[in-house]
Nucleic acid binder design. Structure first.
Lengths: 259, 259
DNA sequence: AGTCGTAACTCATAAGGACAAGTGACGTCA
DNA sequence: TGACGTCACTTGTCCTTATGAGTTACGACT
C-alpha cells in the first residue's frame, strides 16, 4: 500500500499516482499495468475506486483496457500519417494532391441529394433549403489501415453550370478541380481545421480507440470571383493523422473575409 | 419506464436512449436532463447504471454535469474563435498576424533555456541536446475569456546569428519575424495541426470542460535557404477555436519535404 | 425587511457482493 | 501428437447501501 493523500477524491489520488508512474516512465508505453485486484491491495481501496481511477486515465487517453487481459499504457507515438494540404497543378488543368494516390476507397462512394443546412450554407454563401449533390467516401490507407471519411457537397447551381459535373456528382475531387478549371475558373481554397470527440457512428467506422478526437477538415473551393463553389469535408482520427499547411507572406494589406 | 433492449450492456442502452433523445431534439441544447433518480425510475435501473450511462455521454462531450444542479445538454455551438493562420507584411519588414491584437498576455511570459528533444529536433533539424531559448506565454482573449498556451523555441545558433535576438529571447513572434527579415532572411512557414486530449495541467490552465480535445498547432519558420529557424507552438481548446488556412496552387511539380 | 438556518433537492464518492465474459495456459483424452 | 475441455486469471456489468457535498428555496427569527 503506497502513500497517497493530496488532491481530493480517493480515486483521483489513485489516478494521479498511476498517472505519475506512467509519465515518469515506471510503466513504459505498451506495458501491462497491475491488475485491478493488485491495485486494490496496493492502494488499499475497493474495486469501484480502482475502476473509477482507471476510467479517468482512460478518458485522458493515457491507457487502453482490454477485456480479459488488462490495462496497457498507450504508446503516445506521433501520428503515422501526415496530410499535406497542398494542391499542385501538374500540367495544364490537371491537379494533384500530395497524398492523392495513397487512399483507396473502402467501399463504393454513395451519392445523394441534400439540402443546405445552416452550417453548409454559411460556408458556401447559400440560402437554406437550396439543393446540392452530396457524395460520401470511406477511404483507407492500405498500408496502415487508417480510415477517413470524405464528403463532397456541390450546389445544383454550380453543377449545372459546369459541363460534365451534374451528370456525375461522384467525380473525384481532383477531377472536379480540373472541370472547374477548364470551365475558366481560377481556383483557390480555404480550409478550416476543427477537432472534436467523435459521434458513436464515427467512432465505429473510423475504428477509433477510447478518448480519441477526430480532426475535421473543411475545404471550400473558390472560383475566379472568389465565389464559393464546392465544399469538402475530411474526418480522420487525430491519433493517426496530422495536417500540414504552408504559409507564405500575404503582401496584400489584409484580405477581407466574408462572415 | 421506457422500452430499451438492443445493443449490449444495460448502461449502454440507457446511454443510447438519452443520446437519441438529445440528438432528436427532445432535450434542447442547454436544457436540464432528468435527475439521476428520475432516470432510475424512468428506465428501471439502479443508480450506478444511470451514472455509468451519464459518464459515457460525458466522455462523448454531449452533456455537462454540475454538482448539485444536474446534467445539461452541451450547446454544441461552433467555435467562437477563428484563428486565421496567415502572415501579412504591412510595410517594409513589419509583419502582422490576423488576430495579433486580439490576445492579451494573462501573465508575464516566462523565458528559459532548454535542450533539444527528439520531437523538436526533428522539426528544427537539430541534433539532440543542442541548447535553445524557450518562452512560454499564457494568452487570453479578453472578450471571450478564451485562453491559449503559446511557446517559442529558438536555437542558440539562430539567436546568436541575429542581432537583437539573443539579448531578448522573449521577443514577440511578429517582432522576431521582423528581426529575421532585417537579417536578410526570406521567410516562409510550415504549420502542422494535431489534436489530442489535454494533460491534466493543460485542462486546468486552459479551463477546458470534460471531453474537450485541444488543437495543437506547430509552426516552423523557414529562412532563405529553407532552413528551419524558429519553432512555435499554440495550444488551445478545440471547443472554442478553429484554424483556417488559405491554399493556393503550387505550380512546382511537387516540393520535396525533408523527413 | 433583512438575515440566516434548515430542509430538500441535486450529484460525488466509497464500499461490498455477485455474476458474466474474454483470455490463455495447462492437462487430459483420443 | 493433436484437439479440446477446464480452470484461473483478467475486466465487464449490475445491484445495494451509505455518506459527503453543492445548490436552492423557504421560512423563522431578529
Amino acid at each position: 500500500m503506497s502513500e497517497i493523500q493530496r488532491p481530493g477524491a480517493l480515486y483521483q489520488q489513485v489516478a494521479a499516482a498511476i498517472r505519475e508512474a506512467i509519465l515518469s516512465g515506471e510503466f513504459a508505453p505498451g506495458s501491462l499495468l497491475p491488475s485491478e485486484a493488485q491495485l486494490m491491495t496496493r492502494y488499499g481501496v475497493s474495486r469501484p475506486t480502482v475502476r473509477n481511477a482507471i476510467a479517468a486515465l482512460r478518458a485522458e487517453g493515457l491507457i487502453d483496457v482490454r477485456h480479459g487481459k488488462g490495462s496497457f499504457v498507450r504508446s503516445s507515438g506521433q501520428p503515422t500519417l501526415t496530410l499535406e494540404r497542398r494542391i499542385t497543378r501538374t500540367s495544364g488543368d490537371t491537379f494533384a494532391m500530395p497524398n492523392g494516390d495513397l487512399w483507396k476507397e473502402a467501399e463504393e462512394p454513395s451519392t445523394y441529394r441534400a439540402r443546405t443546412t445552416k452550417t453548409t450554407g454559411r460556408l458556401l454563401h447559400l440560402d437554406e433549403e437550396e439543393a446540392l449533390f452530396g457524395c460520401d467516401r470511406l477511404l483507407t490507407d492500405p498500408r496502415t489501415g487508417t480510415r477517413a471519411m470524405h464528403r463532397t457537397l456541390i450546389p445544383f447551381e454550380v453543377a449545372d453550370a459546369v459541363r460534365g459535373l451534374a451528370e456525375n456528382p461522384g467525380t473525384h475531387p481532383a477531377a472536379i478541380y480540373q472541370l472547374l478549371s477548364q470551365d475558366g475558373q481560377h481556383l483557390s481554397w480555404t480550409e478550416t481545421v476543427r477537432a472534436r470527440m467523435p459521434l458513436p457512428d464515427e467512432r465505429t467506422t473510423l475504428q477509433l480507440p477510447d478518448a480519441t478526437p477526430i480532426l475535421h477538415l473543411t475545404r471550400v473551393t473558390h472560383g475566379s470571383d472568389d465565389r464559393a463553389l464546392i465544399l469538402e469535408e475530411l474526418r480522420i482520427g487525430a491519433d493517426r493523422a496530422e495536417a500540414t499547411y504552408r504559409i507564405t507572406i500575404d503582401e496584400q494589406p489584409a484580405r477581407r473575409t466574408r462572415a
